[in-house]
Design a protein around this nucleic acid. Structure first.
Length: 139
DNA sequence: GCCAACGTTGGC
DNA sequence: GCCAACGTTGGC
């Protein structure tokens, strides 16, 4: 069981928008980066990920679940781009800020810290546990 | 809003 | 296949 992290600008597509889609979820479209796409191809039904607000949020605000595996991105005719569907699972009791993540030595290898530009990224099980604890939320 | 870092494109 | 130019992302 792998864990993931999805980044989005809250002004464009935030947690509230994701929650509003309910259990059907929504495709994570618009990704035009091979690394991010490859990560989505790896995702299996039922795997979980963090939902992170970039730019004007800079914090992890909730947990999402993959509810459809990789399929063509319907927002483009270019067959190279695929995406998964995700649905909101539960919000964090306490959002976990980028500052808090950077301040924790155990999280210094996180992709979020090392490669801030990757919008869909893997999270290790250890990182998953630590961050859920920080957010006072069930993993 | 700025700009560094990174990814992609395209001419050679 | 290299690399300069360009576009985008995202922290600050």
């Amino acid at each position: 069981m792998a864990y993931w992290l999805f980044k989005s600008e809250p002004d464009v597509w935030g947690w509230d928008a994701q929650v509003a889609k309910g259990d059907k979820g929504e495709q994570w479209d618009g990704v035009r980066n091979y690394q991010a796409r490859n990560n989505m191809r790896e995702m299996k039904l039922g795997e979980k990920g963090f939902f992170y607000h970039s730019r004007s949020g800079l914090e992890i605000v909730g947990i999402v679940e993959v509810c459809a595996e990789a399929h063509p991105d319907t927002t483009t005719d270019d067959p190279r781009w695929e995406c998964v569907d995700i649905k909101a699972l539960r919000p964090f009791t306490v959002p976990v800020s980028l500052d808090a993540i950077k301040a924790d030595e155990r999280l210094s290898d996180m992709v979020l810290v090392k490669n801030s530009r990757l919008s869909v990224q893997p999270v290790t099980e250890q990182e998953w546990q630590i961050i859920c604890e920080m957010g006072q939320t069930d993993p």
